[in-house]
């Protein structure tokens, strides 16, 4: 399942997509949990009884601000969460 967490507002579309098929049985040992400086990722058991990562609810409404520090303007050349997720399950829409 592709789970899109986030929102669209007047300033743009801010979604983090997690491909749960790649996330189940993570080959990166859940590196996203520690890679995100804001610790936005959390492991949950989804409706199909699979352990997958999701974005914590409060962060889903503030992604554009929360992720701003990790974007190129913050000095990063690649996003820490996407780099840490070696199975390639995490994508940003912006």
């Amino acid at each position: 399942m592709i789970a899109n967490y986030g929102y669209k507002d007047g300033s743009g579309e801010y979604y983090i997509s997690i491909d749960t098929d790649k996330c189940i049985g993570c080959a990166a040992e859940r590196a996203c949990l520690t890679a995100c400086p804001k610790q936005m990722f959390e492991i949950i058991t989804d409706d199909y009884d699979d352990e997958v990562a999701w974005i914590k609810k409060p962060n889903c409404r503030t992604l554009s601000y929360d992720c701003a520090d990790c974007k190129p303007s913050g000095g990063y050349t690649s996003l820490p969460c996407m780099t840490a997720c070696t199975p390639g399950a995490i994508k940003h829409s912006w």
């Binding site: 399942m1 967490y5 507002d9 199909y48 609810k57």
Partner: peptide
């Protein structure tokens, strides 16, 4: 009937 892809708007009520 399994959801394979979803997107919502978690921020505002405009939609």
């Amino acid at each position: 009937g399994r959801a394979v892809d979803f997107a919502g708007n978690e921020k505002c009520a405009a939609g």
